[in-house]
């Protein structure tokens, strides 16, 4: 993988660069070390998913998706993501707007609280809803009486997923909107735009790539959540089984090949997410460079 090596620091002048250049042996050593670490811990697990999935050939691979239970799991996972992701997107936008456009007391507390779900074990994320909505929980008896099902049903799975993927959009947007400040919005408002127009025409175009990445990352996590969903799902095949739970069930039935086949679907989703992230970063860099270029030109013309 390692071919030509050159330092990346874009500092002008050959002699300047040399002084902070690492010795060749060190460079090779570090790159070699880093690449073996990546190969061992990232590439191999990735490769195993696909080799195991295709161990019995393409027809066996495709057969894993023909199963009605697998299809139901895929449908359920899509349904959960379709509900959970937009909810967290709206929250992310609202929280980022509040935190970056206004100064108010309790702002730092709010910012820290958004991070909370990152620190909570997914198992506990599932447990809290069982305590609230399970038959033995706080509102369990009332829900039973009114025939509302949350635990062991889709609402519980959605709630657990929302909990776990809660911070993703907000965490992407807050630093981005912070760095952009609020001058553009203020200008638009001064020129007579309404709040909604300002948001749609000024803020949204500025943050669209960050928002996009937040949403796809949130989506990847929502579709892949295992621990929290496992606690609230009830594992009914064809009914409350999501794709990751289906992977577990197949694995526990010694149906290793089918299990990896279904897992490969989630893996492709993960890889797609990574590609989109790289793309978004590239777009972002380009827009920053463009902005820089515009600024220098304006500066020069003055």
């Amino acid at each position: 993988m390692a071919g030509t090596i050159s330092t990346l620091t874009h500092v002008a002048g050959h002699s300047r660069r040399r002084s902070i250049e690492d010795p060749r042996w060190l460079r090779w050593l570090l790159i070699g070390g880093a690449l073996s670490f990546v190969a061992l811990f990232l590439i191999m697990p990735l490769a195993v998913v696909f080799t195991e999935a295709l161990r019995k050939g393409w027809s066996a691979y495709l057969a894993a998706f023909q199963e009605p239970d697998a299809r139901a799991a895929i449908k359920l996972t899509l349904l959960v993501a379709v509900i959970a992701v937009p909810l967290n997107m709206v929250f992310g936008l609202a929280a980022a707007w509040a935190i970056t456009k206004f100064d108010f007391r309790g702002k730092t507390v709010l910012t820290s609280l958004i991070d909370l779900p990152f620190a909570v074990s997914p198992v506990i994320a599932g447990l809290v809803y069982v305590l609230l909505f399970g038959a033995q929980g706080w509102w369990g008896p009332w829900l039973m009486e009114h025939d509302i099902k949350i635990i062991f049903a889709v609402p519980g799975i959605v709630l657990a997923t929302v909990f776990v993927t809660f911070p993703f959009v907000a965490r992407e947007l807050i630093p981005l909107m912070q760095s952009q400040g609020k001058n553009e919005e203020l200008a638009a408002l001064t020129l007579g735009a309404s709040g909604w127009q300002t948001f749609r025409r000024v803020t949204l175009p500025n943050i669209k790539w960050g928002l996009f990445y937040g949403v796809i990352l949130c989506n990847a996590r929502a579709m892949g959540e295992f621990g929290a969903v496992s606690v609230v799902s009830g594992h009914v095949r064809g009914l409350t089984n999501t794709v990751p739970l289906h992977v577990e069930i197949l694995y526990n039935e010694y149906n290793i090949q089918a299990s990896f086949a279904v897992a490969s679907l989630l893996t492709v989703l993960a890889l797609l997410t990574l590609v989109l992230k790289a793309f978004v970063e590239w777009r972002h860099q380009k827009s920053v460079q463009k902005a820089d270029a515009v600024e220098t030109r304006q500066f020069a013309s003055k």
């Binding site: 399970g134 038959a135 099902k149 635990i151 062991f152 009830g234 009914v236 095949r237 064809g238 009914l239």
Partner: peptide, 22 residues
């Protein structure tokens, strides 16, 4: 008829039914 299945340890499954699994 479509029959859906849920499997697990019997005690655990009984509790799931008590807990509202329909």
């Amino acid at each position: 008829v479509i029959v859906q299945q849920s499997h697990g340890g019997a005690g655990k499954q009984a509790r799931a039914v008590i807990d509202g699994l329909e």
